[in-house]
Structures are given as structure tokens and as C-alpha cells.
Design a protein around this nucleic acid. Structure first.
Lengths: 213, 213
DNA sequence: GACTTTACCTATAGTACTATAGGCAACGGA
DNA sequence: TCCGTTGCCTATAGTACTATAGGTAAAGTC
């Protein structure tokens, strides 16, 4: 049993750090087995502690899910806002938005997957809180696209709402098979998806796309 | 209780028909609550029968899920094959593939959602069977895209595998919000997504897209 | 009209899961 | 060195869920 080390870790690991480990374990288990398919025992097993000990860290399984989902989504809106307000044309910004959207797949795939697939099982109040963050994120993306249409960079007949949903849907779909699709490196996905979306959005005859780093 | 009518329905409803109703009820419940979040009691409630009576129709909850998933996916490959073998250029075929992919959202959304989200909970043998159907479908799409590249209709530098995953990811993502996204009619989604994908796939300077039907 | 099949029903065994109650050892500060 | 806090632990109450066993009324078959 890998829990002997934990017995005397009180000093070295400050409270917040350990709480993050608990949430990360929950994310992992929720991502793999689904919220309802995962038992609190499964989460405890990952941590090497007893099932009941989890309740020292969270009130209920549902609140653990909310913590996971919040961790899975809250950074997106923040980074997107920085991009939207930053320098560059709409095409640059869309490229950056795609890059930042796909970035968490690398290190935090469990959080992303748990958020995408399990957030709908949150109780109403928590789901509303999570949904509010999502909506903010969506609106930032939609605004970037709108601005691209306004500036003439994107097609005048582009449906900004559908384009937003397409960008998100495309980005999110990658998380569903990332790591199980042979040959699909992170870089290749980013490169392809940015190119596909920009070609779909931009006016005919726009200058060729710059290769990204 | 709405089950009185069932008591004497043996004659009017042939066995196969009733079995389909059972599977449809399972699809509905799995789509709404998720496989693990759904109880056999929930399914029985939809049908107005007792929980144990379900086991007259299926061996286990898992086998019900397999039936739902099979129903959710098996037609795709068949219709895609007809399109791939049929007349028309690659752009036409991609448009048709998108249209047929999005078609089941209208009437059979429960099957689609249950398939997309719950198939991963199938036991290994069943999951393999379902996965085989999926793979066939994917390969047909990829072949159409490859043929488009070969014929010069699509860009020579298009990444066919990524393009395939993009088409599928985009199509599937629509199912996740279909019906809850105000203003997003079926027609609007189809129109937008076909246009986005064809612009992303086709060579620069290709003739403008034909308006569909 | 007896016999079989269909499409359910009741009852329950057996299991698994969440969450609470109460305890305790080690550590950190005074 | 005493005491409060932290980070677990054991034990269990209470609930819910799957699947089986066995029954039965009506419809269909001969």
C-alpha cells in the first residue's frame, strides 16, 4: 500500500497543495469512469487513503465534481480575454484562441474531459456557476469573430455564432480522442485546426497563412 | 399508472416493435442521465412497466446499452458508403456526408447522444464491435477526402486524417447542444458546417459553393 | 378446449455506494 | 510540556440498484 508515506506528510505539504491532489485524483477518476461510474472508493484508491477520508476535503461527491469542473474551465475565459484585448488581427487572435484552447489537453486532459462530459451531472446551482464561466468564454470568442467580420478580415457572410460553436466543437472534440489517435501530436492538431478554421473564416484571396512557431 | 393499456397489447404489437420501444426508452434515459446515472427503474418508468420486466427484453443493462449504441451508429457507415460510391465530386460528397451525419439529430438524437457519450462504458467485446463499425465509417470519410486531394479538388497539403477527425468532431459536437442552442435550426447548422468544411478543404480559387437543395 | 407462448407481474437476494460519527497519532506553537 | 489542529482512520447506518425466481392472465395454436 502506497499510503505509508502520507502518514507524516502534514508538515511538508501545506493544506492547499494536498487539496489540489485530491481534486486532481477526482478529475482522473471522473474522466476515466464518468461521474456516476466513479465511486469515492476509486478516488481514495488513487490517493492511497480510505474512502471516508475524502470527506475531510470535500462535503460531497457532487462538490468534488464542481471543483474539478471549475478547475477545468476557469482559465479559458481569462486567457481568451487577454487574447481578445491584445494586439494582432482577427486571424492572429483566432489562431491564438485555438492554441490556448488546445493547450490544456497536454497536462490537464483529465480536467478537460471531466468538465466536458460530466458537468451536466452537477446539481443546478453549481451547473449554473460553471455555465456562466463557459458563456463568458463563448462570448469572447464570438466577439473576436465578429470583429474579424467587421474589419473585413473574415467573410461578411460568416455566421459568427455557428463559427464560434464550430471552433469550440472542433477544439473540444480533439480532447475526446487525444492520446488514443496514433500520430496525432499536439502540434499537428493545432497546426491543422488553425489552418482549417482560418481558411473557413477568412475572405477569399486573403494572404497565405503564416506558419506558427 | 399508464400501464393498464399494456396488459392486453400482446396482439397488436408484434415482438420486434415492442423491443424497439424498449431500446428507444433506454436510449432516452441513457442520453439524459448517462449510462451509470440511469437506473433500469428509470427506463421502466418511461415505458410504464416494472423494473424487472425489462429483463424479459434484455439480458443485462450493458446489453441494452449495446443495442442503443448499435442503433445509434450502424446506419452511418451504410449511408456513407452509398455516398462515397455514388456520383459527384469530392466537394459534393463531403457536403452529402455532412448532411447525412447531421440528419439523425432530428429524430434520433437520443441514440446519437447515448452512442457518443456512453459507448465507452461498454464491456470490452461489445465496445470492439461498435468500434469496428465506427472505424469503417471513418475510413469511408477519409477516403472521400483523399480522393478529393487526388483529384485536385482539395488542397494538396490538406491533412486527410485531421480533416476527417475535424468533420466528425464538428458533426458530433452539434449533437451535444442541438435543441438547446436558440436559433440554431437544423438547416442553419447544416448550411454553416458544410460551408466551413468545404472552404477549409478546397483549393484556393475554387468556384463558389452551390446552395444546397 | 387443452396447451403453449407472450408479456408482463411480485418479491427478494445480494451487492455496492454515500456520508456520518467518533477516534487517534503526530505535529506546531506557546 | 501541554494543547489545539491537521490529516487521516474504523465502523456503520441507510439507501439504492441489478438481476433472478417464480407466478399469471390473456392471446395464439392445434
Amino acid at each position: 500500500m502506497a499510503r505509508a508515506e502520507r502518514k507524516t506528510a502534514g508538515a511538508a505539504a501545506p493544506r492547499r497543495r494536498r487539496a489540489d491532489e485530491i481534486v486532481a485524483a477526482a478529475a482522473k477518476v471522473f474522466a476515466r469512469r464518468g461521474y456516476h461510474g466513479a465511486s469515492t472508493q476509486d478516488i481514495a484508491d488513487v490517493l492511497g487513503i480510505r474512502q471516508a477520508s475524502l470527506y475531510y476535503y470535500f462535503q460531497s461527491k457532487e462538490s468534488a465534481l464542481e471543483a474539478v469542473c471549475a478547475d477545468g474551465v476557469e482559465d479559458y475565459a481569462l486567457r481568451a480575454l487577454a487574447i481578445q484585448r491584445g494586439p494582432g488581427g482577427a486571424a492572429d487572435k483566432v489562431a491564438q484562441l485555438v492554441i490556448q484552447h488546445l493547450a490544456p489537453m497536454r497536462e490537464r486532459l483529465d480536467f478537460t474531459l471531466a468538465f466536458l462530459r460530466e458537468r451536466r451531472f452537477l446539481p443546478e446551482p453549481a451547473r449554473k456557476r460553471i455555465r456562466a464561466i463557459e458563456k463568458r468564454y463563448e462570448r469572447i470568442i464570438e466577439r473576436v469573430i465578429q470583429e474579424g467580420i467587421g474589419s473585413g478580415e473574415f467573410r461578411a457572410d460568416l455566421d459568427a455564432r455557428m463559427a464560434t460553436l464550430a471552433l469550440l466543437g472542433l477544439g473540444n472534440s480533439a480532447a475526446l480522442w487525444y492520446g488514443r489517435e496514433p500520430g496525432a501530436t499536439h502540434e499537428r492538431i493545432v497546426q491543422s485546426y488553425v489552418e482549417l478554421l482560418l481558411r473557413a473564416f477568412r475572405v477569399d484571396g486573403a494572404p497565405p497563412l503564416a506558419r506558427m512557431h
